[in-house]
């Protein structure tokens, strides 16, 4: 079943001579439960693609459909609500809210939605993430690996249809990187979470089902890694 469909997605920055084509007529689709890795050299357009898939940027042309819903046909408010319910984003630099403690950061999408937090689910999730004894800590009281685990938890708390991660291990040492990837794989394999991960690390890419390679804003390769 197709979960994500990208049609002729294009993104330009700047005008005239200064115009940069970050993404150039990209089309592909992702099936529900698929784990897709996206690789490419710096400046190839990986992050731009991920931001457009996450609904946090606006394309110059083209469409992004998540479960048949065209993200950019919605107004700002509807898109924001869609984002918090259907898309989980994980950044390289965690981007946690410094004034909220771990529990509040984790449950932020639910709190914003005015939804009740399922305590059992939260307990299981924090247990899996290894954050049970850190719930009342502020982000700057955590290590980088712990912060990234909070951001993964935040991305998953609302059971989103699609989880996007932008170099989630790019800021971590090898031990923490391995832990984070284990977690992501766990959620993919155990919960069937659809996952798109941008990475520079070939070893991480090899853990995915499918690998997309981007160069100069275009998909140059689309290969199955683990059939």
């Amino acid at each position: 079943m197709e979960l994500l469909r990208v049609e002729h997605l294009t993104r330009h920055y700047g005008e005239g001579a200064a115009r940069v084509v970050a993404l150039d007529d990209v089309s592909f689709s992702v099936q529900k439960g698929e784990f897709v890795a996206i690789m490419g050299p710096s400046g190839s357009g990986k992050s731009t693609l991920l931001h457009l898939l996450g609904g946090v940027d606006r394309p110059t042309a083209g469409r992004v459909l998540v479960q048949g819903t065209d993200l950019y046909a919605m107004d700002e408010t509807a898109l924001a609500i869609f984002r918090r319910r259907q898309i989980g984003l994980v950044y390289q630099f965690y981007n946690l809210i410094p004034v909220l403690n771990v529990q509040e950061n984790l449950t932020l999408p639910l709190l914003l939605d005015g939804r009740r937090v399922d305590k059992d689910y939260l307990e299981r999730l924090t247990g899996t993430l290894g954050l049970t004894d850190r719930l009342n800590h502020l982000p700057d009281q955590l290590s980088g690996g712990q912060q990234q685990r909070v951001s993964i938890g935040r991305a998953l708390i609302a059971n989103p249809a699609l989880m996007l991660a932008d170099e989630p291990t790019g800021n971590l040492d090898s031990r923490n990187s391995a832990e984070i990837m284990t977690l992501l794989r766990h959620f993919h394999e155990e919960k069937g979470q659809t996952l798109l991960v941008i990475t520079h690390d070939e070893r991480i890419a090899r853990q995915a089902d499918r690998l997309l390679t981007i160069e100069d804003g275009r998909i140059t390769r689309d290969e199955a890694v683990r059939p």
């Binding site: 996450g54 918090r84 319910r85 984003l89 946690l96 999408p109």
Partner: peptide, 16 residues
């Protein structure tokens, strides 16, 4: 600004 952007990316509406 970055934090606010973060909040928006996790689904804070413009009105919110």
């Amino acid at each position: 600004a970055r934090e606010y952007a973060m909040l928006r990316s996790v689904g804070v509406t413009p009105g919110g």
